[in-house]
Amino acid sequence: MIKTNMPLRMVKDKASQGLVFLFSVLLAIPLMVILFYVVKNGLGVMSWTFLTHLPKPVGESGGGISNAIVGTLILVGLASLVSIPMGIFTGIYLSEYGNTKTAKYVRLCVEVLQGIPSIVIGIVAYVWVVVTLGHFSAISGGVALGMMMLPVITLSTEETIKLIPKTLKEASLALGVPYYRTMLSVILPTGLNGILTGALLGISRVAGETAPLLFTAFGSPFMNANITKPIQSLPLLIFNYSTSPYEEWQKLGWGASFLLISMIFCLSLITKGVTRKR
């Protein structure tokens, strides 16, 4: 029998397991603290007025953030409008031509795009849209957010389609169904859940983004549905109000944080529901 230091080995084993356990569980503390503060300061602010009214000028109490809620919806909608179809088509391309050299470069571009800091995307949207139009606008914010959503949707579409059995495509082609109809009417519906998951992931990724909106959507105290005008959004409002010296605004900021986090968590719950149905 080879002699090994069994007690020491066991101690090391237990110790490593304990450390892994400890560090993993420790992470719950900051999460709890953050959620505690957001709920404590934000829940009290929630009211019908908060959700449906416009902000009041400094010094007056009350008021709401309806413009930011509507703005966030518009910005996310604008972003989805281009990035979802474009992401789906690029995803189909990657899954169909995945082994060609071009496709490898395209995939690298998508992955790199995903890694570009949001503030840089903001600069680019500023140069492309704000400078061209001559002023800040909702559309420029939509462009910035769209660029951030695109890689998420592309990669999840690719993953989804790759998982669909090849025989399904062959079955359709063997019936004399043209290739484009096979992809659009057989493959896409089969992968609908996965693609939907990707879209929802993309939306929850950009719904909380502030940096790319700082000098594109810019923010506005008014209700606005004109996409060529500056527009408010929840994250922008949180940034402006939390760094303001007015306690009244800071309170609204906590309320908006609570609302934004709830929205994003709900989105991820829906995403999970969709994924499970697969």
Binding site: L27, P30, L31, V33, I34, L35, Y37, V38, S204, A207, G208, E209, T210, A211, P235, I238, F239, S242, G253, W254, S257, L260, I261, I264, F265, S268
Partner: peptide, 15 residues
């Protein structure tokens, strides 16, 4: 971990 990932940057900053 998922919840931590879902909290927006600006809320981290606020906190």
């Amino acid at each position: 971990v998922e919840l931590l990932a879902g909290i927006p940057s600006v809320v981290y900053g606020f906190f």
